[in-house]
Design a protein around this nucleic acid. Sequence first.
DNA 1: GTGAAAGCGCTAACAT
DNA 2: ATGTTAGCGCTTTCAC
Lengths: 328, 328
Amino acid sequence: MILSGQGQNYNPVTRKRVLKTAEKLGYQVSVNARALRLQRSFLFGVLLNEVNAHLSAQFLLGIQSSMGSTDYSPVVFFSKAEVDQEHCLGRCLNRHVDAMIVNCSVDGPEQDRLAAFAARLNRLQIPVVEVYGRFLSGIPSVNVDNAEGGRLGTSHLADLGHQRIALITHERYENSVVHLDAWEQFRGYREVLTARGLEPRVITPKMDLGNVTIPAFVQAGQDSLDLLLSQPERPTAVVCYSDLMAYGLNRACRERGIRVPEDLSIAGNYDMLLSSVVNPPLTTTRSNHFEIGCRAADSLLRALQGETVGDQLVAPDFVARQSTGPVG
Amino acid sequence: MILSGQGQNYNPVTRKRVLKTAEKLGYQVSVNARALRLQRSFLFGVLLNEVNAHLSAQFLLGIQSSMGSTDYSPVVFFSKAEVDQEHCLGRCLNRHVDAMIVNCSVDGPEQDRLAAFAARLNRLQIPVVEVYGRFLSGIPSVNVDNAEGGRLGTSHLADLGHQRIALITHERYENSVVHLDAWEQFRGYREVLTARGLEPRVITPKMDLGNVTIPAFVQAGQDSLDLLLSQPERPTAVVCYSDLMAYGLNRACRERGIRVPEDLSIAGNYDMLLSSVVNPPLTTTRSNHFEIGCRAADSLLRALQGETVGDQLVAPDFVARQSTGPVG
DNA sequence: GTGAAAGCGCTAACAT
DNA sequence: ATGTTAGCGCTTTCAC
């Protein structure tokens, strides 16, 4: 009736009185009853991974922002391991969510499990979007543009006059489905170098990729200095896969008396708290996780309207700080 | 009927067949319809603050764990600012959540706004629990035991033989409602010292508490070295309010040639990624956010059963690393 | 322009 | 031990 929304057609004076009384009584429409009637829950399921905890706040803020004035609310589940993920999905389905945002991660190859998971999601008949990864075939995704990340740091260093720019990444960067981010980043890096007639040099410190921890990345960065110094023509600048590696390398440099950025320029990727605070503060790239959240939720909203949505890439921003400088 | 739950009283063979068919058809009870009938939403509202983003994953994992096999799901909202908080609460109420977990924060004094917010929550007639703060009068809370945090670091240093142990904290630590954590921490620190016949020495570097940023804490830590060195009897060890301060102090020490821990032992609080990775790795204390989440959800579950729940304190763990050592 | 009634899927109470 | 029914609060349709 009047309260339902299109009260335009009603007697304005009656309408006003009803609305006023409703407000006075603290009346709230029951989303539940409405949901039952309309056969939808007005709930979005959001499956997040523990490893991406650091970005989850911005990301969820983005989702909220897109949901804005809609009646949708996000039901959020974090999963620790892969088994958890299935369980969390189960909980979402149990709530009959109208759409899902899922963030997968892979600790190992596990292609089978992921294929099964993707199949299950595809069978669901509700819009699903994957974020921070492209593990689920048939599901549209919203991702960081890692190639652009690779390009950004590399061009910056080249612009500063560096000719020998190395990329420090992990061993399995090449053509990997699991480590697609590293592969894309490499391609961005290579693209810039070849465009400028420079030669790519990839340094891959040993690390246990089956069990990647935070200190392991720092250690890998630290270890990479030896590899760097043993190169025939020593690079004057490096792009690191991640800021954790950049930090490790930076530390190794200090211990060896190599000045950053005077003797070696270091650029990272995936800005984090650490990076702004270390000495020197790290030049890096940063994704806008708020925007990624917005886009993901927006895709779902559009899919719910019947639109077909495709993959999206969000370009990271370049963050100039003090760990890079002109070649000297 | 059979599917409802207490199918015990039914013919086992019929029951089995029904259950099997239901499973085959992928039948899921509609939480929505059940919710409408039972006049509850089976939803918990979780209001989180952006500033606590780093701990949110563990915290939410804890909530999930407590909700375990119940039919409840968490609807999560992050708020940036105080206004947001009201808005997020509105969205939760609109969903008729059965209970709420709220994490407030204060950028300024704003006692009025908080009082109004608390009043609103109290009027709700649903169980509410506050976490990471005690700003809402009349609402039970689950908090980090900051006094224990202060005790832990201080005893550790005293056990190592230090006699002159300073506390580096911010200016408004004393008796502050807004900065209750700092006040409690100070009391834990003082308690240990007086019990051992040692004298408290509080160092409060200047910082703009109206607009606290991450670099501001690091800077304050850095600034505190001068204050420390100008003390009549120079302390041999310090406890810092936070790891960010400890990190800044550590950096200042390195720049001045003061060795950590040989010349000065530094203990922090509120362990973070940074702390395990800097040189030397920081001795600190760490809260189990998973457990805080568990307890919060658990309180609500119990309150929903009609129990009266009170305030809870979760003691942090001590994390021994390399920034503290025996007095030399 | 306004009111009445059916029905979404469930649960609880009642009837067989 | 099993079947039936009313009604939760909404939206939609149909009747006035």
